[in-house]
Every structure is written in C-alpha cells, then in structure tokens.
C-alpha cells in the first residue's frame, strides 16, 4: 500500500520522462488494452503484473470495431461532432453497398464473383491505393528551396490518403450530399482511378523527377 501511495505522489509531483507521461492521466507503466477475443485464445497478451488502461469508447470486441474506420471518422469530423461524422460514414457505406448490389442485380450471371460487395473491404482497398510511398520535403540550401523526396512514416501515409479523399469529396458540387461524393471517391480509388490516385501518382512523378536532390536528405 505504501509503495503505491508513494508512486501516486511521485506521479503528481514529477514531470520527468521516467515518472510521468505528458498530458496522460495514466502512469507510464500502463499499456493499451487488447480487446479482440482472438488474441486471448493461445495465451494472455500481457503479464499478470502489467497494469492495463481502460478501453476507451468505440473500441469493443465486436465485429463493428475497425480502427481504420474510426480514424477516418475522426478526420471527417469537425468541431467535435462525432455523431454527424459517423452518420456520414454510415451513409457512405450504405451508398457503396447500394451501388454494388445494383451492379450485382443488373449484371449477367457470369460476372458475379468479380463484384466486391463488402464496403469495408472496398474502403480498405481504396485507402491502400491512395497511400503515397514518398513525399516531398522543403530543404533550403544556399538561398534556394529544394523539394527533396523522402520516405514517409506509415501513419503519415495513411493520414495523407484519408485527407486527400475527403478534400476531393469536398471539392465537388455542393448540391450533392457529402456522403455520395465520398462514396464516388472511394469507388474510384478502389478501382485505381479518380482524383486521389491521380494526385498520388503526380506526387510520385515529382519525386522521381527530383531524384537528384535525394542526397540532400540527412534524416
């Protein structure tokens, strides 16, 4: 009891890296929980003595939990309106499904296995196809700013893909509902066509063109 009390006191006094995590109400020893049931089949993910954080909202063991979709909802949302953002996401999925089911119903019998009906799979594919491999970074040398091609972290790539999709959807006609435009963009990206994939390819071409400056990179 006394050691834990001391630990609590240390947590609230100290601001060093070893004793306190910045802006977190949890001490640094706490780990993120593992919610999927499959992870518990063979052996426990953590040791019995490792303290575990509480699972936040939206993260459950059910099949409706997908971290990529949650990330996307967070990027769509503005001013903290999570409800509206998740509604738009739901409508987008509905639109994608409607279109695919329509295709299935109107197609001649031979085409059936080629049409993907699962909106989550289409969403994942679309994000994968829109992720850029390299980005450009401004480096100043001798008064001139050069665009240097640089590898990107996975989180940055994912974020850029999502942001470009939403921007492309926002740039269309304002009369059409947002979710329809977003569904268009996702379908296009799934088929490797459309504005977002074009933007990615243009970026890649520029990186290729600026290959000479790659040696300016020190990171």
């Amino acid at each position: 009891m006394s050691t834990s009390l001391l630990k609590c006191m240390v947590v609230f006094w100290c601001i060093s890296r070893v004793t306190q995590v910045r802006h977190s109400r949890y001490p640094p020893t706490f780990v993120e929980p593992v919610v999927k049931k499959e992870s518990f089949e063979t052996e426990l993910p953590f040791d019995v003595s490792t303290p575990v954080k509480a699972a936040p909202l939206w993260r459950t063991s059910s099949f409706t939990y997908d971290p990529l979709i949650l990330k996307f909802i967070n990027i769509i949302q503005k001013k903290g309106e999570k409800d509206l953002a998740s509604y738009l996401m739901r409508k987008t999925f509905e639109q994608i499904k409607l279109r695919q089911v329509e295709k299935v119903n109107t197609a001649p019998p031979g085409d059936l296995p080629e049409i993907e009906l699962n909106p989550k799979k289409i969403f994942h594919e679309a994000i994968e196809n829109s992720k850029p491999l390299l980005g450009l970074q401004n480096v100043e040398r001798g008064g001139r700013t050069y665009q240097v091609p640089t590898p990107l972290k996975e989180s940055r790539r994912r974020f850029l893909a999502m942001k470009w999709l939403i921007e492309a959807a926002n740039n269309k006609e304002p009369v059409i509902p947002f979710y329809q435009k977003l569904a268009d963009e996702l379908m296009d990206a799934y088929q490797n066509t459309g504005a977002v994939v074009k933007r990615k390819n243009d970026l890649h071409k520029q990186c290729e063109a600026n290959r000479a400056y790659a040696h300016f990179r020190w990171w």
């Binding site: 109400r25 949890y26 993120e32 929980p33 593992v34 919610v35 518990f40 426990l44 993910p45 953590f46 019995v48 303290p51 575990v52 954080k53 509480a54 699972a55 936040p56 993260r59 063991s61």
Partner: peptide, 16 residues
C-alpha cells in the same frame, strides 16, 4: 477475470 482486465474492462478510467 484476468482476460477481462487485459481487455481493459476492469480499470477505472481516470480521465476527467
């Protein structure tokens, strides 16, 4: 019960 703890179900959420 240990499995529930590691899924984050038995910790009080300290965030305020």
């Amino acid at each position: 019960v240990e499995k529930m703890r590691q899924a984050g179900l038995l910790t009080k959420d300290p965030r305020i």
